[in-house]
Design a protein around this nucleic acid. Structure first.
Lengths: 243, 243
DNA sequence: CGGGTTATTGACTCGCGTCAACGGCAGTGG
DNA sequence: CCACTGCCGTTGACGCGAGTCAATAACCCG
């Protein structure tokens, strides 16, 4: 497994991401400390730890999660290619959640101290970094509203819309089926619902032909219809910076 | 009401905030576009709007909130002195939530374009800005875990611990009573509980002598005991940058 | 073939939402 | 000075959505 250059980064020609200039690519390449591949189930970052690296996901999927003292688990977000991991530790000094691989993943590794160089020499990239943090904040705000205000079907529909749109744009397509290798338990823990109830709710959506998630594939024939159940607008995701 | 200089900013000698250097103060002062006072009930920033300003809270309290299509309201966070408002719009171009004043508030106003100057000329301040965004992300992550995993009493206890600690440090004291001018409905909407249930839960905590919130005052005789009910550590808030 | 993980389904329970009524308190106007 | 009104907190009765328990498939892997 040889390390690819940032000039050939697979994320560049990939759907939603704003490409870097040649100059930026060169800078980032000097920034890159290496690459890492992990097996399913690996903990990439640990809650409470002070990781010396930050990562960008090149391939594969994972989860951000927090665990309460008594073992209950909350899934904070689904991790997909293009996501930045470890920014909190990089900025604040300590991770506040764990990141775990669900499929095999390939990660781009940066050293944490390089952040300072970035802030000092590349204001546009520093701005992008803040953009990413603000976007995450936005998403978590929506999540809070969902867990606080929406009922069971609405929650499941909301989550499926969100992740379907993210997955679809990564596939550069407008297909109605995308790979979705998570377990129902993961979705349940993301939505604050029990596994059983999540399962039954998924059945209901399937019966209504609004969404069919089975055998690792998520099929949504009509996003708008599903979004309506979720009481949300299926807002197109803005193009976004990365790395 | 004359405008005070950043050199005399009331937040500087105030508990949790990391003071700026003289140089930074001078820079920030050139940054400052003015001051604003608002009455209770005023909407300072509107969801979906593209506000040309960002603000730092000097005095008073407010709420961040999101409203679903059918009118349900989710309180995202309680806004206290030192909080930065409008960063999302400043970075991403559009507010994702509304900010409303609950008491009379005094705000420090910055122009949004100045952000670029800041990123270009003041990397430490840019870093602070990202720090603030990351901290907000951290808090929202905890909130998600609370709404997703904790039951009624736990939620209320958690929220009271959080806000009590924030309020107390602003009072520079270790007193057991702090002002808390919100309504029970606000707390209910923050926790995704009904008003009635929130009220009854508050009664239970009062009966157990763990927390007494009445007449606009929150009294917590033993933070650790309350935190235990909340299933959380009463982590001391880190000192933090502002502006 | 056996053991482990995940999905599915039914029966029962309970936390929390909803409805509704009442009391305290402040503001307002006659 | 006192009705009148509106907002907020408080309390009880009742019902539903979602959690819990439990049993059965379906599937994968060694």
């Amino acid at each position: 497994m040889k390390m690819i250059s940032c000039h050939d980064c697979p994320l560049h020609d990939c759907g939603p991401f704003i490409p870097h200039s040649e100059e930026e690519k060169t800078f980032l390449n000097g920034f890159k400390a290496g690459e890492m591949s992990v097996e399913p189930g690996t903990q990439i970052l640990l809650e409470g730890s002070n990781a010396p690296q930050i990562y960008t996901v090149l391939e594969g999927m994972g989860l951000r999660e927090k665990t309460l003292e008594d073992g209950r688990r909350q899934v904070i977000n689904f991790v997909l290619p293009g996501d930045l991991l470890g920014l909190q530790a990089g900025i604040m000094g300590e991770m506040q959640h764990t990141v775990e691989a669900v499929t095999r993943m390939r990660l781009c590794v940066f050293r944490r101290e390089s952040l300072w160089t970035l802030f000092r020499n590349r204001p546009e990239l520093a701005f992008d970094l803040t953009w990413i943090a603000a976007a995450e904040e936005h998403f978590l705000g929506e999540t809070v509203a969902t867990l606080g205000q929406r009922g069971g079907i609405e929650r499941v529909a909301w989550a499926l819309v969100k992740i379907f749109l993210r997955l679809r744009e990564l596939e550069k397509g407008t297909k109605e089926a995308v790979p979705m290798p998570y377990r129902q338990q993961d979705l349940a823990d993301a939505l604050g619902l029990s596994l059983v109830h999540t399962n039954k709710t998924l059945s209901r959506l399937r019966a209504k032909r609004l969404a069919d998630w089975s055998a690792g594939t998520l099929r949504v024939p009509d996003v708008a219809a599903l979004a309506e159940v979720a009481m949300t607008d299926p807002e197109a995701l803005p193009r976004r910076p990365f790395l």
